[in-house]
């Protein structure tokens, strides 16, 4: 599904150049659940942003189901992202002045889905995630776990083929964190590809494949044979 070839990213300030990613080669098949781990500043979030088309690589190629994405314009990227990718962030990134319903419906709104269908799809996903009673609330009125569920609902509403999660449990206690991880597993079981960045070995245990990064490069890879064992 995802094929990254010789991908590099360089951050430039006035005089200093910092290589955030160097010659990354990575293939992710459809239906995989991949975790990217590494210390702070190793480039894992940058990699995730590039995969999510939030950032552009300095060099290298990015193919998605055979389609080259590295040369797309900002507009094409936006369209592609809306159609294929859902995001989950550590800090939830909900818009405070919109209600739960409005937050979830936002991707549909920008995708041009009509109001009636938006309403129907949001209601359905709210029910799935046990959030129906919070539909009219604002993010600040929700607990951290609920906020992350809303964020997940927003990520899922467009029925993306790929979910990108950047430390999805970083701001949650362990009970809520586990709930979120189980949801990601369920999604993955249903066929959605998931790529997650985390510091937590525990969370990484939920995934099928773990990639370790250091100084902008992939250093090792590990496959979890028995995922359910990690839950113990």
């Amino acid at each position: 599904m995802i094929d990254l070839r010789q991908l590099s990213k360089i951050y430039r300030t006035d005089r200093v150049e910092t290589a955030a990613l160097t010659n990354i080669n990575l293939k992710v098949a459809a239906g995989e659940f991949v975790t990217i781990m590494g210390s702070s500043g190793c480039g894992k979030s940058t990699l995730l942003n590039i995969i999510g088309l939030l950032d552009a690589p300095a060099a290298g190629e990015y193919h998605f189901n055979g389609k080259a994405l590295h040369g797309l314009s900002e507009k094409e990227k936006t369209a592609f992202r809306t159609a294929n990718i859902g995001f989950i962030f550590q800090s939830f990134n909900l818009i405070d002045r919109l209600t739960v319903t409005e937050n979830i419906a936002l991707p549909l709104y920008y995708a041009g889905v009509d109001a009636a269908e938006r309403k129907e799809r949001v209601a359905k996903i709210l029910a799935q995630l046990n959030l129906s009673h919070r539909a009219a609330h604002h993010p600040k009125q929700l607990s951290g776990g609920q906020q992350q569920r809303v964020a997940i609902a927003r990520a899922l509403i467009g029925k993306p083929r790929l979910i990108l999660a950047d430390e999805p449990t970083g701001n949650l206690d362990s009970a809520n964190g586990n709930g979120v991880m189980e949801m990601l597993c369920d999604l993955n079981d249903a066929g959605t590809t998931v790529i997650m960045v985390t510091h937590s070995q525990h969370d990484a245990g939920f995934s099928k494949r773990i990639i370790y990064m250091k100084d902008g490069q992939i250093v090792t890879e590990k496959f979890n044979r028995n995922v359910s064992a990690a839950l113990v």
């Binding site: 999510g52 507009k75 936006t78 995001f87 405070d96 920008y110 467009g158």
Partner: peptide, 15 residues
């Protein structure tokens, strides 16, 4: 921040 989120979920510059 809101603008960033909106861009992530699909808002174009025009939006």
């Amino acid at each position: 921040k809101e603008i960033g989120i909106r861009k992530v979920v699909g808002a174009s510059l025009g939006d």
